[in-house]
Design a binder for these strands. Structure first.
Lengths: 340, 340
DNA sequence: CTGAAAGCGCTTACAG
DNA sequence: CTGAAAGCGCTTACAG
């Protein structure tokens, strides 16, 4: 493999000049630049990342992470991915500063962002609260040279470097296909969502509607209720729904509160009759998959979401590598009892 | 973060001595060593990998890969993972030498191994041909200081550094659960395998038997046939099986030849009646998932198999990182038309 | 048993 | 517009 030194020798210039050309720092005579580029190309020059990273240690890099992980077990796996990457990058001289927040309001998140910035982070990984004030702040951070990667939840058109997470619409479509697979051609589905105002939830439902209306006309939505991601509310809402609609023979849990819904099904003695599908394999859901109450869960590779978001930011900050895409959708996979 | 230089200063010794202690190279007075270790611990010293990798460039590292990828589309994704990792590691001064082989006999594989060794590779990633001569060779390579990682297919107790691939028994268990999910409590299953002598195939069948006999007593194996991974043979075997056993209402494809089996089902006009499950989403299988002939496929994350096996070898060779496990099982996921 | 020095491949002030 | 030199953090002969 070629090095800058070799290129410099072949071109009869110093390594500094080669560096200027290959990294577009300007101030090089065009002819010299052209010659250097040509030599580099013909030698298939690939910069040595280890050397680059080492050089960059003069000014250490730190990345701030802000997640809604408190009291939401889903984020455990995202965190695991972040920690994995974090320990990898520690060996490359990069620090990860992790902050966990309750998902209460935009204000708290803005404050947490300020705090990270004042601690001198060079980039931020964020599950954004869905509010224009957050979008505006991400925009300002970008203009100040602090890139932001959104993870798990996105805000588009706000100048974020990239989004890493699920394609929610597609995960709704997948729910349609999965339900058909399990329940067959005819089914009356009870849909239990978190909130109609949460984009992730409504996109999943939109995808689901699209899937069944296009491909599975015998499947229909018999009722829809909100549980605001709360297990107790979920229990009550499910109870009410199933009592009011005894024809329901499948339950589609769009958001959290899966455990409460299952408990309601059990309380009504309908666990044999109802086919239940949901998202994500948090511990409570695993239990319900294990004991056969839930048939299948659609997963979104949360571990990878954590790892990839850090990786994108590190590569951008440390090696000037622009993300190749705006959105990195993690794999949608289906888990049943046997492959948990 | 602490550096060796800092530790050396605090301990009043040279960096060379710190290096000797921290990397167990010996020849250091015990008291000095203890003091250095103590300081390193108290500073939470983490070696800088970038610097290490850079140092190691004095003697470049190369890794040889030997796959049965010719004419087997499954390996395309394994290859993609290898190429991804390969381009990452190119920036760290590591070359990947890729050789693709037909899965004919052990002799050809032995020759290919010899050829790689003579080219000076420092480690080998291999889909081993299942033969004692290969096991013996892996053992010899290990004793010569050339570590081998088996990928996708394993040979145990042969001194390989690690195995990266599917847990075949568990993937058979998963097939049991999946079939029950799709076909319901009662089903007569036709099993179409590659060869009873191929361990991967027989383990999947063993897992499947275990699953249905333990959890789904209404599901039974009505017939079993071999297709030797050949689509045409598969077509004929399926035709014969379904004709001889008209009661079969589910097909479990254990190995390759999925396309041929599907074509036989279609030729007999049984595509509405039969539920079909299989492994891996090679292009032909995707087509059959798209058009609804196959209900679901169990996947084994081949991309990761390729990437992880290279990564393990690189970390071992470059940074002396021992794999934490003997076996790295990739995720088992279920794919249907909607989440392909 | 220990130290001083050179080098891995790159970047970065600094000088001209 | 260009070069010489120092430095990132580690390892490796070499000398003693």
């Amino acid at each position: 493999l070629a090095t800058m030194k070799q290129i410099a020798e072949l071109a009869g210039v110093s390594r500094g000049t080669v560096d200027r050309v290959l990294n577009r720092r300007g101030s090089v005579r065009p002819e010299t630049a052209a010659r250097i580029r040509e030599i580099a190309d013909s030698l298939h020059y690939v910069p040595n990342r280890a050397a680059r990273i080492l050089t960059a240690q003069k000014h250490r890099i730190s990345i701030g992470c802000l997640l809604f992980s408190t009291e939401n077990p889903f984020f455990e796996d995202v965190l695991a991915g972040i920690h994995k990457k974090s320990s990898e990058l520690a060996g490359f001289g990069c620090d990860i500063i992790l902050r966990e927040l309750k998902m209460t309001d935009a204000k708290a998140q803005l404050d947490a962002i300020d705090s990270l910035v004042s601690e001198g982070v060079h980039g931020i990984v964020l599950t954004p609260f869905n509010d224009i004030s957050i979008a505006a702040r991400i925009n300002r951070l970008a203009s100040e040279g602090i890139p932001v990667v959104t993870v798990n939840t996105d805000i588009e058109h706000c100048g974020r470097l990239a989004y890493v997470g699920s394609d929610y619409y597609r995960s709704g479509i997948t729910a349609g296909g999965l339900l058909h697979l399990i329940a067959g051609d005819r089914a009356a589905v009870g849909v239990l969502t978190g909130s109609e105002n949460v984009l992730c939830h409504s996109e999943r439902i939109a995808g689901f509607r699209q899937s069944i209306s296009q491909d599975y006309p015998g499947i229909r939505i018999a009722a829809l209720a909100e549980n605001h991601d709360d297990d107790f509310e979920s229990f009550l809402a499910t109870q009410t729904m199933l009592t009011a609609h005894p024809e329901i023979d499948a339950l589609f849990c769009v958001a959290a509160g899966v455990y409460g819904a299952c408990k309601a099904v059990i309380a009504l003695g309908k666990q044999k009759k109802l086919k239940i599908i949901c998202y994500d394999t948090v511990p409570n859901t695993r239990e319900m998959l294990q004991n056969g109450i839930i048939s299948a869960a659609i997963c979104q590779d949360p571990f990878r979401q954590g790892a990839k978001s850090i990786e994108l930011l590190f590569d951008y900050l440390m090696s000037d590598i622009q993300p190749q895409r705006q959105q990195y959708f993690t794999d949608l996979t289906i888990k049943i009892r046997e492959n948990l």
